[in-house]
Structure formats: C-alpha cells, structure tokens
C-alpha cells in the first residue's frame, strides 16, 4: 500500500510475509494527507509579500513541505497567509476571501503589521487581523525571514498532525 510512513504513530507495520499494509484510523490518514498538501492563498499587501515570494521560489522552496500549489482563488485553498498591512478598506475584502475558503482552513498572520499594526498606529490601519479573523499562527518580524514563514507552515502542519482543530472551527 505504500503507507509505510513513520509519522503515522498508531500505524502498525504488519508482518512482511503477509503483504504490506498498516492499520490506522481514518482521521490519521486524512490529517497526514491534509498537512502535506496545504494549498496557500497568498494575501500579500506589503513587503512581507516579497519575503513570501522568496519563500515560494526556488531558493527556499516551500514545495518541499507540500505547499507549492499557490491558489489565487480562495475556493481552492485551505491556508490563508496574510502578509502585509491591512487597511480598514481592505479588511472587508480579506474577510470575504476568508469566508469563501472551504473548511477546514487555517490562517497565518505574517509580520508585525498583520499581527498588530506594526509601526502604523494610524486611523486607517487594522491593529491586528485577529480582531476579525481567527489566526492560527503569528509570525513576528518586519519583515520575517523566509525561514520564519516555513516554520509557521510547519507549525500549522504539527497542529494538523496532532488532530487539533483550526481556530476558525472553534469559533463557528
């Protein structure tokens, strides 16, 4: 069957002589597939988006973690990466994009601006998208390094692996 993945903790390797199969639970298999095929929806509005592009390109190569299929349609994606500052005019757009994503869905708030407004403590800037969206992982930095984004994706993967629900699912 080719499911001999050491990550499936409860999986039990059967005797080779009886053919290759493992026993596990359906949740474990689904989550294993899910965490290795996160399809990001990039929402890049500022310099963090440049770092996100670098993360996706060949040097840092996010596809090593199964997330190479960047979707510019929210209906085909399950990981929203908010990278950049969000103004009060942009927030309804972002909210609508989040609402259009199919469940289950995760949100990464990348960088200081998305997480808390950063240096832009002004009339027009949302002081943290978590006021309006359920954020699963925050990345500090201004802008964060590509390694930080990779780490955040891996953190989402760990949450999925443990079977934890996304923040959005708890709210709904």
């Amino acid at each position: 069957m080719g499911l001999a993945n050491p990550n499936i903790e409860s999986g039990h390797r059967a005797d080779q002589s009886e053919g290759n199969f493992v026993t596990t639970t359906i949740d474990k298999v689904v989550n294993w597939g899910r965490k290795n095929s996160l399809w990001p929806m990039p929402f890049g509005t500022a310099c963090c988006a440049i770092e996100m592009m670098a993360t996706l390109a060949s040097k840092f190569d996010l596809s090593r973690f199964g997330s190479e299929a960047i979707r510019f349609s929210p209906r085909q994606s399950d990981l929203l990466i908010v990278s950049g500052r969000i103004s009060i005019k942009m927030m309804p757009v972002l909210k609508r994009i989040y609402d259009q994503m199919p469940e289950p869905k995760w949100v990464i708030s990348m960088g200081a601006c998305a997480s808390c407004g950063g240096v832009f403590d002004t009339y027009t800037l949302i002081q943290g998208v978590d006021q309006f969206l359920p954020v699963d992982v925050y990345i500090p930095g201004c802008p964060p390094r590509p390694e930080d984004l990779i780490d955040a994706v891996m953190q989402v993967q760990r949450q999925i692996h443990k079977g934890e629900l996304p923040k959005g699912a708890e709210v709904a």
């Binding site: 009060i88 002004t122 009339y123 027009t124 800037l125 002081q127």
Partner: peptide
C-alpha cells in the same frame, strides 16, 4: 486625530 475616531476597531 492620528489614531482615528474608532473606525479601525469597529466596522
């Protein structure tokens, strides 16, 4: 006012 009149917290 620089920080606005509360637009950014609630809409």
């Amino acid at each position: 006012p620089l920080r606005g009149r509360g637009e950014r917290e609630s809409f």
